[in-house]
């Protein structure tokens, strides 16, 4: 810090960058993230369902969807075609 530094216009752009990043990253994490557990949940669901129904590996879909203010855990399971499995 020099004696005559006050003469120069001071703007700390690093702190602007940090604030902008904090906001955008928090937003993006809540939109995409927080779903670290989804792959594991999907696998465990698949194992449980397979005890009762013989479904494909890709039959279980787990998504986190935003519905207004709420997060909805959207789980869909495609059951095998009855006729195909009977044949």
């Amino acid at each position: 810090m020099g004696l005559f530094d006050f003469l120069r216009a001071k703007k700390n752009t690093a702190s602007i960058a940090k604030d902008r990043l904090r906001i955008i990253i928090a937003q993006e994490r809540s939109a995409l993230g927080g779903h670290d557990y989804l792959p594991l949940l999907r696998r465990e669901l698949l194992e449980v369902i397979r005890k009762y129904v013989n479904v494909d590996v890709d039959a279980v879909r787990v998504d986190l969807v935003k519905d207004g203010e709420h997060d909805v855990l959207d789980i869909s399971v495609a059951l095998p075609d009855q006729r195909a499995s009977a044949a």
């Binding site: 703007k11 700390n12 690093a14 940090k18």
Partner: peptide, 9 residues
Amino acid sequence: AGEMLSIGD
């Protein structure tokens, strides 16, 4: 100089 994000940031 406040022009770059620090390690801590």
